[in-house]
Structures are given as structure tokens and as C-alpha cells.
Design a protein around this nucleic acid. Structure first.
Lengths: 362, 362
DNA sequence: CTGAAAGCGCTAACAA
DNA sequence: TTGTTAGCGCTTTCAG
């Protein structure tokens, strides 16, 4: 026999068999008191329960899962837990999963698509009811087809891959998706700037090839076009979604003497960095320069002036992601064969960081 | 036979047996190519691998765990993922776990000790290598002994309960713990205020019975005592760790005409709320009122003026928690029977929210 | 290098 | 109401 008692501890972990023996019943009975899904005589139940307590028995979730009961797990894969964009989505997922009696597994890719792929596989190995990938993606051929393959495998096993805040993988690929009106929000906030008379608007931040950045830029350009403002390539500066990038790049641009009267930061974090650079350069927001962000994470309300930005229903996206992916929550029998999709709205939140363009600028 | 092919899908998920049959080998061989831990002829390996691909085979982690291999998981239980205090600790845990090839399970209690207990149990059922409970605790008799019981069960099964940022459960209870010098930080920052001439310092926020609050308050009082300032009970206002509480209570206190020249917020989030109330009341920080926080989360640098606060090595605590709990990361054989404990240092970070007391105040 | 077979701990028919 | 027993899918001796 293998891995019985070690010299070190001598004490194997207790199993149903041990409990059954001690209580003088069969393993089936133990299982029944464990699951409370079958009648068991009161006296018997008590004997079993006390045996369990005496032995410090803890049921083995793996054995249980193997024996056929769903393990009630949903996996969520994000870039980074400390990033509020992901954290709020994760909260939605966690809350909704918990509501359905499910556990939530969180994995962080640190922005590496390879790790993302590996995590999807890992969640599948653990037989998660659903695996949710969050945030923009890069339209890479090989990567996309790999992810599609995993989506199919997952689907074949009765789970679902959920795309949260990123474009679908193609018609043929069985996924469910929860998006938000990214392009629309960018359009709206750019238009807000335009309405205040700003025409030279600096677009700052966001990984250039990320779907999120592309959508925001698209909305931005559409607004410009609609108001008859010709886009100036010198005003477009993608890069990253970090505070450091916002700060650094803005400082450089200021030093180079680039002219603009407003800044559209690709997200609130970049806006915070940009705000600091502006402050350090002695440019006042919004008097000298107007500034807007995207996402509406808490920092937007903490900044002074408070940041005008686009609200994204982060937590709700997370909730919907699990709702769409797992049927019902209780009735596990019948699964919709549909490839669900959902698109939530965004809207701008006007605070204090935008002012009408004054003639002395630009 | 049970749960074979359903009318609906007809296609059972592939198992090693299926792969073995298709490749014309035994299941043992399939297992060997899966684990790459045994010599397998090149030709055989290829046949098996292509069979796996053809079948869309994905190994079942539960079966594997049941068959004896560690499932390489660590569980972390926090109040709330979107709270940066927890998020940064979680990041440390996640990073370190990943380094050891482990997966990280995150559970959120939303502040409910009962849910915390339930989650510890759940992680145990899933045979996590370690389960880490994060953040202050309330010294409740029943709760403590329940947690202690689970710590023992976990220990009996070769796992560890890690206390991260909270006091130990008692000498007899097998846990490992990672703390930070909470009291010392509170002492230091209070002293900083004292050195600037402040004597009427308002202590604001933190659940009154939480260990975290008690320690911070203790440090605060010790500093006061050392400088010969008699504590005024009217200046102590615990309550919660939320921005809303900081804002609300500060507004009330201001309206009631309470006199003080400085505020020690129980954490940075409370400080942010207090800052807003101060701002709304027309009191300038730090000119009229000095303000300090605790934790040094990112918001502290975003506030204007930037917040002077106590730095807590959050991410490092998370890392140490898993390092202490799981031996090595590779050699699983020999486990230290020790009840490890670690206490990390804290230090104040002076920014812009404190000024010397002026005579016109207080 | 490969196969046969004995479990890992639990659940769910089926019998009693 | 309870017991017997056959798996769930995988790993791992022990023999070839």
C-alpha cells in the first residue's frame, strides 16, 4: 500500500470509512448525513456526527467532485488584482458566484497572454463551471485560435468561456460575452470636450494594440469627425494603462512644447499620472488644460479637481458574466445551447476637470 | 451505468482510457506522457499526444488530486477584493503562490466572521496547501475557538492556517503568522503630530472591537502618554474603515464644534472621507487642520495635499505568508513542525498633510 | 519501455 | 432507514 502512515505523523487523515467504522454504520450512511439529501434516523445521524467530530473528519472535495457532483467553481482571469478596473469586475463575479453557492478562483496574468491561456487550461482541468477572461485582448492570430480551441474544449465539457470586456472570438466559437459600450463612452466624452470648445485634444495612454484602446480611440475619432475636426496624429500618444506612463509621457510632451487645450486619458489611472505632470509643470486643471479619464474608478473622485470621466458598470459586468455562464444556479440539468452576449451601457460623469476653452490657450 | 452519454450531447468527456484506446496503449502510458516523469518511447509519446489532441483531452485535476498528487493550491480569505489593503496582500500571495507553481483561491467574507469560518472549511475540503486569513479579527470567544479547531484539523492534514495581520490564536494552536508593527506605526505617526505641536488629536474610524483598531489606538495612546498629553475620550471616534464613515462622522464632529487641530484617521480610506468633509466645511488641510492616515495605499498619493501616513508592507506580507506556510515550494517531503511567526516593520511616510500647529487653532 | 491492476475517498444505484 | 457495491479518472507499484 502506498502513502499510508508516515513515520513522522503516523496519523492518516480520516475518511468516510473511518467515520463509518467508528460510528458502526456503512459509508453510504455517512455520505447521507454529509449530504443531508436522504432520510437518516436521528440517532444514527448523531452517532455519525460525533464520530466525525472525534476524528476531525473533513470531506474531500476532490473525491466528491470525482464521484460526480459539480464542484461549483467559477474561475476568473484578470491582469492584476490591485487594478480597480479588474478588482471591481472580480467583485461582481465573486458576489454572483457566491449567490449561486459557488467558489471563485482568481488568477492573475500580469498581462501575459501565455499565462492567460495556461490559466484557462488550469481552470478546465479543475472542471470550473465557467471561466471568465477579463479585459481587452490583442488581436494575435495564434493566440486567438488557441483561445478558441480552449473555448471549444470547455464547451464540449459543458462549461463556458466568458469574454468580459473584449471582442468575440468569431461566430463559430462557443463563448458567452459581456461587453460595455466602450466606443460610445469615448465618443461621448470627446464630444463633451468638443462642446466646450476644445479642438486640440491629446489622446494619452493605453497599449496600442489592445482592443480596449482601439475602441476608445475609435470613439474619439468618430466624435472628432462628426464635429469636423481633422485628427492630428501628433496628438495621439498610446502607450500603457499605468500612472507612470501618464506622468512620464505627459511631462515629455509638455517639455516638447506640444500644443493642446485638453487631454483625453485612456483611463483614470493614466489621468492621475497626467494630472501630476501637469501640476508639476505649473499648468492648472481645468483652467489651463482640461482633463478627462475613463472607467470611473474611485481615484476619479479623490483627485482635485475631481475627474470628469466615463462610467463603466464594472461590478455589474462581473455579475452578468457569471449569470450568463451558469444556468440558473440551481437547476443544473438543462443548459441553454445559446452563445449569449450582452452589452452594457456607459455614460459620462461630469465633475470638475473640464472647463471651456479660453482664447489664451492653444 | 450512470451519467454516461446524455441524449442531448451524446459525447462523454474524454478520459485517459479513451486516449489510451485510441493510441493503442495502456492508461499507464498515457499517464506517463501526461506527467513527463517517466521514460516513454518517442514514437509512443507522439501517438498519445496526437490522440489527446484529437479527443480534446483535458486531464481531470480532481481525479489527479484524489490519486495522490498535491493539488498545489493556496487559499486566501479577505474581507473585500476591491479594498486596496486586501488587494495588495492578495497580490503578494498570488505572486508567491505562482512562483511555487500553485494556484490561488480567493474568497471574500464581506466582513462576516461566519463566512470566514465557512471558507476555511471549504479550503480544507479542497485540500489547499495553506489557507491564509487576512486582516484584523474580533476577539470573540466562540469564533476564536472555532477557528482554532479548524487550524488543528488543517494542521493534522498537513496544511497550515496562516494569520496575516492579526493576533495569534494561542500558544497551543498550530498556526503560522505574519504581522506588521501596527502599534509602532500608530505610535510613530502620533508622535509626528505631537512634534508639530498638536495636542488635541482626533482619532477617527476603525471598527471598535477589531484587533487592528485596538492596536492602532494603543500606539496612539502610548505616544500621547509619553509626551504627557492626557487622552481626551471626546477625541476618540472609532466606527468603520470606510470612506463614507470618515466623511459622515467628520462632518458631524465639525458641525458639533468639536475642537482639535489634527486628525489621525484609522486608515487612508477614512482619511480620504475626512478630507472631503474638511474641504466641504472650508477647513484647509494642513493649514487649519493636519491629517494623517494609515496603510499607505495609492490614494494617499492622489490626494491633495498628499497624505502623510504609515507605510505597511502589504504585498510583502502576502508573500511571506505563503513562504512561511508552504515548505520550500518543491521539496514537499519534510515539513517543519514549527509554528512560524513573523513581524514586519512599518514606518511613517511624510507628505503634505501635516503642518505645525498655529496659535490661531485649537 | 510498457501493461495490468490496485487503490485514492466519495456517491448513488440497487437490495434488503 | 440502512448496507453493498460499482464506479468516477488518474497514478503508481509490480511484473513483464
Amino acid at each position: 500500500m502506498r502513502r499510508q502512515s508516515t513515520a513522522a505523523d503516523g496519523q492518516r487523515r480520516a475518511t468516510v470509512t473511518d467515520v463509518a467504522r467508528l460510528a458502526g454504520v456503512s459509508t453510504a450512511t455517512v455520505s447521507r448525513v454529509l449530504n443531508r439529501n436522504y432520510p437518516v434516523a436521528e440517532a444514527t445521524r448523531e452517532r455519525v456526527e460525533s464520530a466525525m467530530r472525534e476524528l476531525g473528519y473533513v470531506v474531500n472535495a476532490h473525491a466528491r467532485a470525482l464521484a460526480g457532483v459539480s464542484n461549483r467553481t467559477v474561475g476568473i482571469i484578470v491582469n492584476e488584482v490591485v487594478d480597480p478596473f479588474y478588482a471591481y469586475i472580480a467583485r461582481g463575479v465573486e458576489r454572483e458566484a457566491t449567490l449561486g453557492g459557488r467558489l471563485c478562483l482568481v488568477c492573475c496574468t500580469q498581462g501575459d497572454p501565455q499565462r492567460e491561456l495556461a490559466f484557462v487550461e488550469l481552470m478546465h482541468e479543475r472542471r470550473a463551471d465557467a471561466v471568465i477572461v477579463v479585459g481587452g485582448s490583442i488581436a494575435d492570430r495564434a493566440y486567438t485560435s488557441e483561445l478558441a480551441r480552449r473555448a471549444r474544449e470547455l464547451d464540449a465539457d459543458g462549461s463556458k468561456l466568458v469574454l468580459c470586456g473584449r471582442p468575440p472570438l468569431g461566430e463559430q466559437v462557443p463563448t458567452v460575452s459581456v461587453e460595455y459600450d466602450n466606443e460610445g463612452g469615448a465618443f461621448a466624452i470627446t464630444d463633451h470636450l468638443l462642446m466646450q470648445g476644445h479642438e486640440r485634444i491629446l489622446y494619452l495612454g493605453g497599449p496600442p494594440k489592445l482592443s480596449t484602446t482601439r475602441d476608445r480611440l475609435a470613439g474619439h475619432r468618430r466624435a472628432l469627425g462628426l464635429r469636423g475636426v481633422t485628427p492630428d496624429p501628433d496628438l495621439v500618444h498610446p502607450g500603457a494603462f499605468s500612472r507612470g506612463f501618464g506622468h512620464r509621457r505627459m511631462a515629455e510632451l509638455l517639455k516638447d512644447g506640444l500644443e493642446f487645450t485638453a487631454v483625453f486619458a485612456a483611463n483614470d489611472v493614466v489621468a492621475a499620472g497626467a494630472a501630476q505632470a501637469l501640476e508639476e509643470a505649473g499648468r492648472r486643471v481645468p483652467r489651463d488644460i482640461s482633463l478627462v479619464g475613463y472607467d470611473d474608478i474611485p481615484v476619479a473622485q479623490e483627485m482635485r479637481p475631481k475627474l470628469t470621466t466615463v462610467h463603466v458598470p464594472l461590478e455589474e459586468m462581473g455579475r452578468q458574466a457569471v449569470r450568463l455562464a451558469v444556468s440558473g444556479g440551481d437547476e443544473d440539468d438543462w443548459r441553454e445551447p445559446t452563445t449569449g452576449a450582452l452589452r452594457l451601457g456607459t455614460h459620462i460623469v461630469v465633475r470638475e476637470s473640464v472647463a471651456p476653452r479660453t482664447t489664451k490657450n492653444g
